[in-house]
């Protein structure tokens, strides 16, 4: 195995430190981010307030009056050289997804831009195992990698009107599940009855960065039934072993 590059430690003010492992979207970089995230989470130093994994870096928010930068940096360097593999096993989640009208409102546009038939857009998307790289942008907005090249349409130049809750989307070579309605430059392929984010539920979030997601096509009647089950507090996302 070749030597692993040392991450860069970048200050984001006096109360946050960015541990940067690379500058691209890459599963190997993401694995290193998540390995450090796991290691710090297992034994957090006093004064470490939040850990925010992203595609290529781990942002550490800390209280500098409790934990000084040098101590945190030393801890990070020791952990990075010691552990490069993840301590926790990712979970494969199967999320039901209704691609039918009205949910899959942008499938025709994606078909036109990708040269695929609408049926092929759906079958390609639902045959893919996605990796959850990170959350960001909005509460419960999960950025997913692994989108096949055939579906890598650029994002819209200007946003479309707000999508509904729990929209399953693609854009710019990535996929996403969005939980809060808002205007977007992405394309909406469908909707999942599973709520990745429910502030009143414990836990409010069940999908973690590093987990995998597959979308299982369901018809409108099943979607409605599953939505009702989810609303009654019965989770409809299924947990399985990663591939």
């Amino acid at each position: 195995m070749s030597a692993v590059a040392e991450p860069r430690l970048l200050d984001a003010g006096e109360a946050a430190l960015v541990v940067e492992f690379g500058s691209t979207v890459d599963p190997a970089i993401s694995d290193r981010v998540l390995a450090l995230d796991d290691a710090l989470g297992a034994d957090p130093p006093e004064g470490l307030r939040e850990r925010v994994p992203t595609y290529r870096s781990l942002m550490l928010h800390y209280d500098p009056l409790v934990l000084d930068r040098a101590t945190l940096a030393e801890r990070v360097r020791a952990l990075v050289s010691g552990a490069t593999a993840r301590a926790s096993n990712p979970t494969l989640w199967t999320l039901p997804c209704c691609y039918a009208s009205p949910h899959g409102e942008d499938i025709a546009q994606v078909a036109e831009r990708s040269g695929l038939s609408p049926e092929a857009v759906v079958s390609t998307h639902s045959a893919t195992t996605f990796r959850v790289y990170m959350y960001g942008f909005a509460p419960g907005f999960a950025y997913l990698g692994g989108l096949p090249e055939a579906l890598a349409v650029p994002r819209r130049a200007s946003p479309r009107p707000p999508h509904p809750r729990n929209a399953v989307m693609i854009g710019g070579g990535l996929a996403a599940v969005a939980t809060v309605p808002m205007p977007t430059g992405w394309y909406v392929l469908g909707a999942t009855p599973a709520r990745l984010y429910a502030p009143e539920r414990d836990p409010s979030f069940f999908v973690a960065a590093g987990d995998q997601i597959r979308f299982e096509p369901v018809d409108s009647a099943t979607f409605d039934a599953l939505t009702a089950r989810e609303a009654a507090g019965e989770p409809v996302a299924r947990r399985g072993e990663p591939r």
Binding site: V18, S23, T24
Partner: peptide, 11 residues
């Protein structure tokens, strides 16, 4: 353009 990373208040 950078690949997204974390944002602190005051960034």
């Amino acid at each position: 353009d950078i690949v997204s990373d974390g944002v602190a208040m005051g960034a």
